[in-house]
């Protein structure tokens, strides 16, 4: 299990807010640190993969449980 350094609650937010808040939260981390994001927008799954690929911040792990999507993103 990946250990996070910071948690971002993006539940109830819709596109593009989860990505925009994630970008902001990553800006407050140091390289190598991990951000955990919890979201409820089903579109977030594809968006976080695309965000990770384009910004080169690795998406270490993702999971879904009870309508919530959890992402662990490492700051490049």
């Amino acid at each position: 299990m990946v250990q996070e350094d910071k948690v971002l609650d993006a539940r109830g937010l819709n596109c593009p807010l989860p990505i925009l808040r994630t970008k902001k939260a990553l800006g407050e981390l140091n390289s190598g640190q991990v951000l955990k994001v919890v979201a409820t927008d089903p579109g977030a799954v594809k968006d976080f993969e695309a965000f990770s690929k384009q910004t080169k911040n690795p998406l270490l792990e993702q999971a879904e449980a009870g309508g919530e999507f959890v992402f662990f993103i490492q700051k490049a």
């Binding site: 596109c15 593009p16 990505i19 925009l20 994630t22 970008k23 965000f51 384009q54 910004t55």
Partner: peptide, 11 residues
């Protein structure tokens, strides 16, 4: 505004 803010977040 959605596309501009998202694109900016993507660099």
């Amino acid at each position: 505004f959605i596309l501009a803010s998202t694109a900016a977040a993507l660099g």
